[in-house]
Nucleic acid binder design. Structure first.
Length: 276
DNA sequence: ATTTGAATAT
DNA sequence: GATATTCAAA
């Protein structure tokens, strides 16, 4: 047991979403009632303003919280119940968190509930993840088929970056290589719990507030009540030691592109647990 | 009883 | 096509 134990966490921490990134996400997931309760409307939308206004539109272009026009049951005192949330839009950032979570959990333990917990995105429901996971699996399966059919892919690119113009979302996120193996013998390291900071357990702080306090979340590593891990086969020790956290500074290596059709994509494998 | 996963619906 | 919802099975 050495620093490597938490190395993945450190690495992960580096790419943790900045408040700016989470802000829009959380806003999306705010329920109308919540929005009203907090006296926040679309007017106070906090949008990320870069020094250089990029041509591509914001990734988070979702309906505002107050976009509800069909609240059939209006006028009741506590409509907090039976209220439909807006459709969740899986932005590349959100999807990346999803992929990261799945990668860390391993295909075996990558079930909706666990993924949801690992993602720790306020407002995200298990069903949201389940639905997305279903589609993601189909994506992986399709990729496997192509990969095994004719491997000659000319370009010696990463691995999972298919040239399919479809699956825009999935293509914007690096897919861990071992995902493509149909091997369920996942043998990642132990499965420490997650930095569960603001789950939807307490309805006190809502999205916006949660995101604000999201700043520094120190997780408490614990063992899940399910001591049911397959024998750690020790695939390979991660050889990407995170430098001693001295001054992480601004770490921003996110690639989000919606309309790219040419190659030359620089994929960043977060977890080289299967790097060749 | 809860959760998953696939089908099905919006 | 993307996400939600339903539903049988684990």
């Amino acid at each position: 047991m050495r620093e490597e134990d938490s190395n993945w966490f450190s690495k992960w921490e580096e790419e943790l979403p900045s408040p700016d990134e989470l802000m829009p996400l959380s806003q999306t997931l705010i329920t109308p009632d919540l929005a009203v309760a907090f006296d926040i409307s679309s007017s106070n939308a906090v949008i990320d303003n870069n020094s250089h206004p990029p041509p591509p539109p914001p990734v988070v272009a979702q309906p505002s919280s107050a976009d509800f026009g069909d609240c059939g049951d209006l006028g009741s005192g506590e409509p907090a119940r039976t209220l439909k949330r807006p459709r969740l839009v899986w932005t590349p950032q959100l999807h990346k968190r999803f992929v990261d979570a799945v990668a860390h959990l391993g295909i075996k333990n990558a079930v909706p509930k666990t993924i949801m917990q690992l993602m720790s995105v306020d407002g995200l429901t298990r069903e949201n993840v389940a639905s997305h996971l279903q589609k993601y699996r189909l994506y992986l399966k399709r990729m496997q088929g192509i990969s095994s059919g004719s491997g000659g892919s000319g370009g010696a690119n990463g691995a999972a970056t298919s040239d399919l113009a479809t699956d825009h979302l999935f293509a914007s996120s690096p897919v861990p290589p071992h995902f493509l193996h149909s091997s369920r013998t996942n043998s990642d390291h132990f499965l420490p719990f997650v930095p569960v900071g603001a789950l939807q357990q307490h309805h006190h702080m809502a999205a916006a507030a949660a995101a604000a306090q999201y700043h520094r979340q120190v997780a408490q590593f614990g063992s899940p009540p399910n001591g049911q891990f397959e024998r750690p086969f020790l695939a390979r020790p991660i050889h990407r030691l995170g430098a001693p956290v001295s001054n992480p500074a601004t770490n921003h290596i996110e690639d989000l592109d919606s309309g790219n059709a040419t190659e030359g994509r620089k994929v960043l494998t977060l977890f080289p647990t299967g790097n060749d």
